[in-house]
Write a protein that binds this DNA or RNA. Structure first.
Length: 273
DNA sequence: GCGCAGGTAATCT
DNA sequence: AGATTACCTGCG
């Protein structure tokens, strides 16, 4: 189905490091897998996109996944011309959507992400899915269930390139499986309590917890500080980022800062998905 | 071939 | 509290 979307930058969202399950195919079409479904999206230009799904699935799943009901255009008014670096980041990255991922997938993927480059994370996550995930059509695989990872052998997880993170992932998967609807139940917690609960999982510190809050639980005030954001804070916000000026959206702005900082650093060097 | 990568946790001062 | 360090392994 073809839809017209404002404020939607597919390429930048796919490469934003939120989900590690985007792939740009040879024909330029983006394939993403989430919630046990594979989807292909073509950018037709002029704000028109072709989604390889029914209207029903779009409304029930993908609209939500891409956070299409949120008014990202409002950020234009909130971040003024005088905002300097942040304004430039907004102008570059507006259209990047905060994805609504499954909590378990986000939790595991960001545990894995520590001390890894994005290409390395992708390779690792794909290996996990191929080995432990449900087979979908076209040689695609869903993200593994907590049970599948909880019962995975140490050797099999090592073979996926998890390295020293193997016990982190296994124990996290076990806790989630034993906890039943544990991750769903966390939805009712406020930001501080949710962050604290997430940090109880092994291998989850402040940064990973903030990523899971932002990319799975839609906590738009979560502000993950990784090495890129730290560089931006050091250079542009020595007094600290003015969170109080952007209530309810500072996580989105964090994502824009992240994309813009990487873009500036990577200018000139070839880089693709 | 070799340093480094979207951090965390343990171990210090 | 804040600084320092080991940690697996693939990618550039």
């Amino acid at each position: 189905m073809i839809v017209r979307l404002e404020n939607f930058n597919l390429a930048l969202t796919a490469d934003s490091g939120q989900s590690f399950r985007f792939a740009k195919q040879d024909n330029g079409v983006f394939r993403v897998i989430a919630y046990g479904k594979a989807l292909c999206i073509s950018d037709l230009g002029g704000g028109r996109y072709d989604f390889s799904c029914s209207r029903e699935e779009f409304d029930a799943l993908w609209s939500n996944y891409f956070d299409l009901d949120r008014d990202y255009a409002a950020l234009n008014c909130l971040v003024g011309e005088d905002a300097g670096y942040l304004r430039r980041a907004l102008e570059y990255a507006s259209g990047v959507r905060i994805l609504r991922q499954e909590p378990f997938e986000a939790l595991v993927c960001f545990i894995i992400s520590q001390r890894k480059s994005i290409p390395a994370i992708r390779t690792c996550v794909e290996a996990l899915c191929a080995r432990f995930g449900e087979a979908l059509q076209d040689n695609n695989y869903a993200f593994p269930t907590p049970g599948a990872l909880a019962t995975a052998s140490e050797a099999d997880l090592l073979a996926c390139g998890l390295g020293y993170r193997v016990p982190y992932v296994r124990q996290t998967a076990r806790r989630v499986q034993e906890g039943g609807t544990l991750l769903e139940d966390l939805t009712c917690l406020d930001d501080e309590a949710l962050g604290h609960a997430l940090r109880q999982f092994p291998g989850v510190g402040r940064k990973v917890a903030a990523c899971v809050m932002l990319f799975a639980y839609q906590r738009m005030d979560a502000f993950p500080v990784d090495v890129w954001i730290q560089k931006v804070l050091d250079a542009e916000y020595p007094q600290g980022f003015p969170h109080s000026r952007y209530p309810g959206v500072s996580g989105i702005l964090q994502q824009y800062l992240f994309c813009y900082a990487r873009h500036c650093a990577n200018r000139g060097t070839a880089r693709n998905l």
